[in-house]
Design a protein around this nucleic acid. Structure first.
Lengths: 337, 337
DNA sequence: TTGTAAGCGTTATCAA
DNA sequence: TTGATAACGCTTACAA
């Protein structure tokens, strides 16, 4: 009999449970003095309203789920940090799920979340191309969902993205201006919308500068470190590009490692630019030219968007799409020293 | 009337709610055929047992809380990844809380978690030196708690740590062997146990090699990027160390930036070694010699330890302390090229 | 301003 | 093997 609950607290104070309950919520009328007395006693006895009972009653969990493809990635850890901050300010807690780019896990997570555990979901989708129509199957009962960064274009739900097309265009153009004419584009999943958008910018920049597009300069990489190492080395030796544009930061790292091994000098022999939120890009050898996304801000915006949806009182004229700006930061990996 | 629950499912099948319930848990006796029938219908109607109702009933949440000082840090994101993996395998979900090294937040998080929201806590403590006896105040009602990496020594709870003393000793000795005699030790919080243990290894290595200890070579840094930049530059110019040993990776990065600015050559003028789980340490300029902690494994072990405590059937002869080995990986920042 | 009592959706106990 | 029923701890009409 050591656990405290509302009944015992009520007995201890010679009050009813409803009065206790009122002391813990703001709206109801309650005498200031009794409220103070209740809160004091509650503190003394270490009482807190049981979260599960409250939420069963109120039918909401004050919890949102965050689903990301990976965690050991500067972009996602910064984004989660942003989400966590906004969630906390709104009195929400966050559950984290990592898909490891595995579509099946994504489906399982989402399905299980529909048991009341979370009130809404913020997600960056897995890298696999599949039928994600499962998201529509929930019908009107689907949990509020906000995509950030990696999205499924055929799912109609609010999203926070960056100006990927534009950044890719400018990134490619930057390589061209630095004298590159054989520019490889390294991507993890061509069919994922983010891969496609970023690739389109690349293609259009080539076209604008009348550089013929060469199919095999699009290098489709995998999620395995070892496989990528092989793929990239092969691409570098066989295709002999003079520029590389990578769609995710870990492909840039893999390219660096490959160049070290193959004795290819960056930037003299090969220029490298990448999407990356790495804070120490200036410390790399050579310092890495990046398209830097406002990761924390993206997370914050995504969370805010979700909370607007969850807030019953809010004006429901929400934007379906928030676009934030990435910045190209030129460093030594694309500039001949 | 669009939300499904156990009652409606029971009606739809002409069964009682208890039978439905039994179909979803493994132990109770139930006819195989009815079970199949129930599960099929459940799938059709998209029914899942409500998490809050179940947990109110069962008095457990199948959720653990993870509290970390920061998220944008390779060590912690890897550790969380490990925790998440183990948690998922055990059917648990994880809640994430970031203290930003703020002690007050840590206290608030822990206190609020005692409302049933989580069954246990895995925590790496905030960097502030304070009275953390609050953890003992909960008495026998305190949630099961496992520390990892950054711990409070005066709190008696299981912990997963690395052989910090030894690593620090060897790291310092490595610098000495490379010819350093004025070795600065950069720390964020001297009084935090992790700072102390690591410092002791440093001190003892100096002593072993008869290098006199100089108080002001212990440089106490802060959590602010800007402040650290100033502190470190001042230390480098005034103290003129020939070696730097940093207790956390971001101080190593700050040292790199300072050296770039001050035109100090690493490793010729200054050798640098740091605790760091950065996967791209080899790509830095120069590549960084690190004491690499098995971050993912630490997270996994911490989670496993917690689950053993939570498992009623488990043998309760648990170790109070699990020590994992870090590795020193020598790279160019400490080796004259 | 406070108390009474019903019910949120489950699961466990007991009876059939 | 299945069903009826009483909890789990809380919130909220409604009554006092």
């Amino acid at each position: 009999m050591d656990s405290i609950n509302i009944k015992k607290l009520a007995e201890a104070l010679n009050l009813s449970t409803s009065t206790i309950s009122r002391a813990f919520r703001d709206n109801s009328d309650i005498n200031g003095a009794t409220k103070a007395r209740i809160l004091a006693k509650a503190k003394e006895l270490n009482y807190q309203p049981n979260h599960y009972a409250s939420n069963l009653r109120e039918q909401k969990s004050k919890t949102i789920a965050v689903i990301v493809p990976e965690l050991a990635n500067n972009y996602f850890s910064q984004a989660i940090h942003g989400i966590e901050r906004v969630a906390r300010e709104n009195g929400y807690h966050i559950l984290i799920y990592v898909t490891d780019d595995d579509y099946k896990k994504e489906v399982t997570f989402i399905r299980h979340l529909h048991n009341g555990r979370a009130d809404g979901i913020v997600m960056s989708v897995s890298g696999e191309a599949n039928d994600h129509n499962y998201l529509n199957k929930f019908g009107s009962k689907r949990l509020p969902l906000v995509f950030f960064d990696r999205i499924y274009e055929d799912i109609d739900t609010p999203r926070v993205i960056t100006n990927d097309y534009n950044s890719s265009f400018l990134a490619t153009e930057h390589l061209i201006e630095q004298g590159c004419s054989r520019i490889a584009y390294l991507v993890v999943n061509k069919s994922l919308s983010i891969g496609k958008t970023r690739m389109q910018g690349y293609l259009d920049a080539l076209a604008k500068h009348q550089i013929p597009f060469e199919e095999n300069l699009i290098v489709d990489c995998s999620n395995s470190y070892e496989e990528n190492s092989i793929i990239i080395k092969q691409a570098l030796t066989q295709l002999k590009p003079d520029g590389v544009f990578t769609s995710v930061e870990r492909l840039a790292f893999a390219t660096y490692y490959a160049c070290y091994d193959l004795n290819i000098n960056i930037p003299k022999d090969l220029k490298v630019i990448s999407f990356s939120s790495l804070e120490i890009a200036p410390l790399l050898n050579p310092s890495l030219t990046t398209i830097t996304q406002p990761a924390t801000e993206i997370g914050e915006e995504a969370a805010k968007l979700l909370f607007t949806i969850l807030d019953d009182h809010a004006d429901k004229n929400l934007p379906n799409e928030v676009v934030l700006e990435s910045k190209i930061i030129k460093r030594n990996s694309t500039i001949n020293g």
